[in-house]
Amino acid sequence: MFDIKDLYQEVIVDHNRSPRNFGKMEDADTTLEGFNPLCGDKLTLYIKTDDNKISDISFDGSGCAISVASASLMTDAMKGISLDEAETLFNEFHNLVTTDDDYDVDRLGKLAALAGVKDYPARVKCASLCWHTLHSALQGESTPVRTE
């Protein structure tokens, strides 16, 4: 049965209402903007790295519940992990929201709450904007990320 709550799970509603790691980081090593011109979602990621690890990460900006919750959950998941692990997680998340492949709930943790997005093609970009922005930032790119 169709249920909108499959998309807007409690975790998502909660992270939208009170996003974690929200706010500008003055002493970030890397700062990158992401923008979805289609819906106007905007965010900025602030990242500190230390010894090939993401030692701190935050974001600010505005967008729909899916994009805000995704950024909140992503930043939570990224804190303290290595850059390689971050890249792996990026790929796993991509599969989660775009394919029907099985995913590892233990590894993804709360991120699995975003699995419902794949049934809403128009919303996949909302969920993935922050991830693409992170990916580009970690690749050392400095031009703002645009998804359309």
Partner: peptide, 12 residues
């Protein structure tokens, strides 16, 4: 509530 979320929920 962001308009895109309104759009999706209304579609439901």
């Amino acid at each position: 509530i962001h308009p895109h979320d309104i759009g999706t929920i209304l579609d439901g």
